[in-house]
Design a protein around this nucleic acid. Structure first.
Lengths: 157, 157
DNA sequence: ATATCTGCAAAGACTTTGCAACCGC
DNA sequence: GCGGTTGCAAAGTCTTTGCAGATAT
């Protein structure tokens, strides 16, 4: 989206930072994704366009995108972080296929209301929460009909 | 609990492994905790009793405790893993004070039922889930009445 | 006796930082 | 030209692994 690219440039200017070739390219590649992506995977994508860009710059640009409010960093307990667009202001949670790695976002007000109730009972005030559901998506249940448990190629990395 | 210590020994025997001084000590120290503890923190505790024990052995023993079904490993997205007793067979989730680090466990059937519903709608079958609520506990809200945002000593490490 | 263990050091995975050369503005 | 930026290498954090000497059964 050109819009996001523009917002990113605005953030850079406002912060007294520079719009470099690398930052433009990395941000463009990030906005072109429509899923959760790791720094490494994003690096591989921009590497295809410009071999000279370093992984370190990808990390630094992702940090800037977070500061600009354009990216969120997620830890799904796999060791590495995945980044997603922060375009939708609405909070959402994640359903993750433990077989193929597919990630689907969802939101559910009823669950959130119950969370508030739980927190109140425990004497806490919620600042934020993390809800992750892990399981098999429809496709992977179909694949596993033979019961082999064979690992498929992992998507969305 | 002597009972857990015994179960651990049983697991070792059944697996053809040995009940060493280090494993006994580490397991005992682990069972003596009543909170979530990191490998490093557990190491410091056993170090107090026996300076010769290495951090590596703590990691290896925690792995054995997991295999024995006596410990669970949790990733709260802080970089390092925390371990808890697996005594209660029931699943539970966590409410974590973002100020003092206190962790309270809870369970809520209504939330779990709603999770199932969400998954069904998305075409997934849930295998497991992770729900973490982050916020301020009663004590920390009281401490923060001055609004200093000062960091207290972190408990339960 | 012998197969398993331990502790050290080293490696591995992921991310951040120091630094000299580089480049927007 | 100045100050921010880049990419390399190196460091940092957490955890695992290789190996030679030690130990439980």
């Amino acid at each position: 989206m050109q819009n996001k690219q523009h917002k990113f440039r605005q953030h850079l200017v406002r912060s007294g930072l520079k719009a470099t070739r690398q930052r433009e390219l990395i941000a463009r590649a990030f906005f072109a994704t429509n899923t959760h992506i790791s720094a490494e995977a994003l690096y591989r994508r921009v590497s295809g366009r410009d071999r000279r860009i370093g992984l370190v710059t990808v990390y630094r640009t992702l940090k800037l995108l977070k500061e600009a409010g354009l990216a969120h960093e997620r830890q799904f307990g796999e060791g590495r972080a995945l980044f997603e667009h922060a375009s939708s202001d609405r909070h959402h949670d994640h359903m993750i296929c433990s077989h193929c790695g597919k990630i689907v976002e969802f939101e559910n007000c009823e669950i959130e209301a119950l969370q508030e109730e739980v927190a109140r009972r425990l004497g806490f005030t919620i600042q934020y929460h993390k809800l992750e559901l892990y399981g098999r998506c429809k496709d992977c249940r179909a694949d596993a009909s033979g019961g082999t448990g064979r690992i498929r190629a992992v998507g969305a990395r």
